[in-house]
Design a protein around this nucleic acid. Structure first.
Length: 494
RNA sequence: GGGCUCGUAGCUCAGCCAGGCAGAGCAGCGGCCUUUUAAGCCGCUGGUCGCGGGUUCAAAUCCCGUCGAGCCCGCCA
């Protein structure tokens, strides 16, 4: 059984209405690793819906988190924003409302493309609009109890001035430098490292992460939450959250789905703080959404994924094969009612190049070479094939059918003879195999090594020594075209 | 020190929850009219299921132990 179905069945034992929380922080480029949280949630959502459950995914964007440090991708002037909430830091490119939105907006666009329907909650607004107020009051009142739980579970001492609530300093704007000195029904008093002393309302500050998390479970009625393995470690924030939920906020903690990290092949774990990322927004430009989803959904959450752009084509092959047997991972990955016809993505990459990405020509070639085409599907995937080629493909795979005038390479006598003979022998109804075989036949008749014969073909068409597998390449180009081209090349050189 | 995950064919992994003849893809080898390239077809090779014990008519699967690898344990997916 698929992992998402197992989780769904477990959840259904608890009830048939669920609210799944996700919580990626927009502190840097949101990447494939982060996406695992959303796709884990989405796969579970679908599995639940397939069984008649009611589900909603809530995405709490931690826009209120302080900037931890100046990340390598930020200019030096951002030093002064360290410690301030992401929602109050200027946008790096100047086009978004603030720092958090700069990273959040492209990510939300990606979620749309990927068919992940979420209710977005921005943490800064939740605090500002008072959604946390009750929880903050409970936390301040129960400070000693919370402290005790944290110390018991983590085995570490909280220091004397520890507080569950972190006010924003009115003077320096930082959220991680204040110490709470007292509170009443309306205000929280604090002193800040910057020397300022003052008071803020319950809406001008946030709970520390370990308290914030269980608090939001209660506020949003969360029943299930995927989390990175860091949270799930013994003494980690899920352990403390679980107890705080029950003993302080008096709610049941959500059902956890722990997932592993995604590594970039040969590079290591993706870390937005280190700039090791493939931003999700870029991936969804280049790959069909169902493929992006499949990369993650096909693996159990607890397994590492080593993402290797070099093997993407193999993965797409696998997807296409799995599609035909209605594999569950594929089912959970498809976004809309796309109808995959039997034209491999791999093939589109070649045919697209032959046709110079002219859609009508692509269709014409596919039809002539006896593919069953679904026009809409080909159109959609062809555009991805083009982008994939530009972004991920190795140079060897790229080629361009040249105009005859652009063929400036030299041909040996034998090569020309081969081309001439080949043109004579080509019959219009020849298929890929026939053409491939004909190369050997003519080569041996002319007394030229097959490898040289292939070179001649590629040179005559592409102006270089190599190209796609010759038989089907020539079939795609059309026997008639090939014949004319070869004759022309020979003419021009004799 | 604590925790999680992984260990099955050369490589990537499925199968384990719910015990019943050890699987797939890739790679390799052979063939498809003697040969190229990241798309083909047919066939073949290839595994003490990390190791040791236990339960069982029967264990890759369940239990106990052990070794190895990776990661996590202020914040982080």
């Amino acid at each position: 059984m698929h992992w998402a179905d197992k989780v769904a069945e477990e959840l259904l034992r608890r009830g048939d209405k669920h609210r799944i929380a996700t919580g990626i922080t927009p502190s840097g480029h949101i990447h494939l690793g982060n996406l695992r949280e959303m796709l884990t949630a989405d796969a579970v959502r679908r599995a639940l819906e397939d069984r008649g459950g009611k589900v909603k995914i809530i995405y709490i964007a931690d826009t209120f988190d302080p900037l931890r440090k100046r990340y390598p991708f930020l200019p030096a002037e951002y030093d002064k924003y360290v410690g301030m909430p992401l929602s109050r830091i200027p946008c790096p490119c100047g086009e978004h409302k603030n720092y958090a939105e700069h990273f959040l907006e492209p990510f939300l666009e990606s979620l749309k493309i990927l068919g992940i329907d979420v209710e977005v909650k921005r943490a800064d607004r939740m605090y500002k609009e008072g959604e946390y107020e009750k929880a903050i009051k409970i936390a301040l009142r129960e400070k000693e109890k919370i402290k005790k739980i944290l110390e018991e579970v983590t085995g570490k001492k909280c220091d004397e001035s520890w507080s569950p609530f972190m006010p924003i300093c009115e003077n320096c704007g930082r959220i991680n430098s204040t110490k709470v000195t007292g509170f009443n029904e309306k205000h929280v008093h604090y002193v800040c490292e910057c020397g300022h002393e003052g008071e803020v309302s319950y809406r001008e500050g946030k709970l520390g992460w370990r308290i914030d998390w269980p608090a939001r479970w209660g506020i949003l009625n969360i029943t299930c939450e995927p989390m990175g393995k860091d949270h799930a470690a013994a003494g980690g924030s899920y352990d403390t959250g679980k107890r705080l939920a029950r003993e302080v906020f008096e709610i049941e903690p959500p059902y956890p789905v722990v997932y592993e990290w995604i590594h970039l092949k040969g590079v290591g774990a993706m870390k937005s703080s280190k700039g090791v990322v493939v931003p999700v927004r870029e991936m969804v430009e280049v790959l069909p959404p169902e493929i992006v989803r499949y990369i993650i959904i096909r693996s159990k959450p607890e397994r590492h994924i080593d993402f290797d752009p070099a093997t993407l084509l193999d993965l797409i092959d696998e997807f296409e094969e799995a599609y035909t047997r209605k594999d569950r991972s594929v089912e959970l990955s498809l976004v809309e009612k796309v109808n995959y016809c039997k034209v491999p993505f791999r093939h589109l990459v070649v045919v697209g190049q032959i046709a110079n990405w002219n859609f009508n020509r692509v269709i014409e070639i596919l039809r002539r070479t006896e593919y069953d085409v679904d026009v809409e599907d080909v159109k959609r995937r062809m555009s991805y094939a083009k982008k994939w080629l530009e972004k991920f493909a190795p140079e060897r795979m790229k080629f361009e059918v040249r105009d005859i005038k652009e063929i400036n390479v030299d041909f040996s006598k034998k090569e020309l003879e081969f081309l001439r003979k080949f043109a004579e022998e080509v019959k219009n109804d020849m298929k890929a195999d026939d053409l491939h075989n004909l190369v050997y036949v003519v080569a041996s008749r002319v007394g030229i090594k097959p490898a040289k014969a292939f070179n001649a073909i590629y040179k005559a068409v592409l102006g270089k020594n190599y190209g796609p597998r010759a038989g089907y390449f020539m079939e795609s180009l059309g026997t008639d075209w090939i014949k004319k081209r070869f004759i022309k090349v020979v003419e021009l050189r004799s």
